[in-house]
């Protein structure tokens, strides 16, 4: 069985970068796949990889990470301005971030209009879920 946990942006928006990363990683280490509203900052994504590496053990083999984000080049000027204001005022809550434990999620393909998440099942690779934007 695969468990998904949705984390709305308001749950992390007031947290420091370190607390955001630790909160997400804690859920992933419980063998759940995180679907988070919005995205982390670039530096936070790097921190997430760094902390993941520090925690790797025979039981925890790392994470699979993917972000679906609106393609800015396809937005008109008004949409870009609105997005920039919303980001400044509310944080970057556009898009979705998916983080899963590498022991469960084999890979996430982002092409980028569609995300395909492949899970491992008792050592066999199965295509488990197919999401479309």
């Amino acid at each position: 069985m695969v468990t998904f946990k949705f984390i709305p942006f308001y749950e992390i928006e007031n947290l420091s970068s370190a607390k955001r990363v630790n909160k997400l990683l804690k859920v992933v280490k419980e063998d759940k796949i995180v679907i988070m509203e919005g995205r982390l900052r670039s530096q936070e994504e790097a921190d997430l990889i760094e902390i993941t590496m520090e925690e790797i053990s025979p039981k925890f083999k790392g994470i699979e990470l993917s972000v679906i984000y609106p393609e800015k080049s396809q937005q008109n000027t008004l949409q870009k301005v609105k997005g920039a204001f919303a980001t400044v005022l509310l944080g970057d809550r556009q898009g979705l971030t998916i983080i899963g434990p590498a022991s469960i999620v084999k890979k996430i393909e982002n092409n980028p209009d569609q995300i395909e998440l492949f899970t491992k099942d008792n050592g066999n690779r199965n295509r488990k879920k197919n999401k479309k934007r």
Partner: peptide, 17 residues
């Protein structure tokens, strides 16, 4: 290989930042 991996995007995003 598929260039849209999050690792590639994270590396380039961090360099850009």
């Amino acid at each position: 290989k598929d260039p849209y991996s999050q690792v590639n995007i994270t590396i380039i995003g961090n360099l850009q930042a």
